[in-house]
């Protein structure tokens, strides 16, 4: 039973394993089920997230790649574009079509030509440069905008805690 989705996921898995982008590791949690992946993203250098390793879970729909996966951080991450429950809010993960809020252009949204690799790279750059236009975590967004010092300190604390320091 080889669906289009699992074939493509396998292809992407192979690519990501043999030719991984910097600071990103990803693959299925269990090789029996290609539709649930775990990814590890390194905190980008020169940001308060530097040094941290952020595990996340990606869940793929049956009709992938027509529809995007969902992504959820499995650790605490204080970020304007990550919901307090860990779900990532980024335009590349939003299904194609019009955005009811008109925050983002259709061109930024999911399309079948995107890939896991592109998602993870986008998330990495999102971590480095939050987008506070449509924040998922309003408190974090306000803190980031108004009290940058406090924001950085809190993020660094989280990172240190996650590393067990």
């Amino acid at each position: 039973m080889n669906s289009v989705a699992s074939k493509r996921l396998f292809q992407e898995y192979k690519q990501l394993t043999l030719n991984p982008p910097d600071g990103i590791t990803a693959g299925p949690v269990n090789e029996d089920d290609l539709f649930v992946w775990e990814a590890l993203i390194q905190g980008p250098e020169d940001t308060p997230y530097a040094g941290g390793i952020f595990p996340a879970e990606l869940k793929f729909p049956k009709d992938y790649p027509l529809m995007p996966p969902t992504m959820k951080f499995l650790c605490d991450i204080w970020h304007p574009n990550v919901y307090p429950n860990g779900v990532v809010c980024i335009s590349i993960l939003h299904p194609p079509g019009e955005d009811p809020n008109h925050y983002e252009q259709a061109s930024e949204r999911w399309s079948p030509i995107q890939s896991v690799e592109k998602i993870l790279i986008s998330v990495m750059s999102m971590i480095a440069e939050p987008n506070d236009e449509s924040p998922a975590n309003v408190d974090a967004a306000r803190m980031w905008r108004e009290r940058k010092g406090e924001f950085d300190k809190r993020v660094k604390m989280d990172v240190r805690r996650s590393l067990g320091l």
Partner: peptide
């Protein structure tokens, strides 16, 4: 599933 494991892939050329 086995068939999926020998998909020719562009990474074959690396190195």
């Amino acid at each position: 599933m086995d068939g999926a494991f020998d998909i020719p892939d562009s990474t074959d050329w690396l190195n």
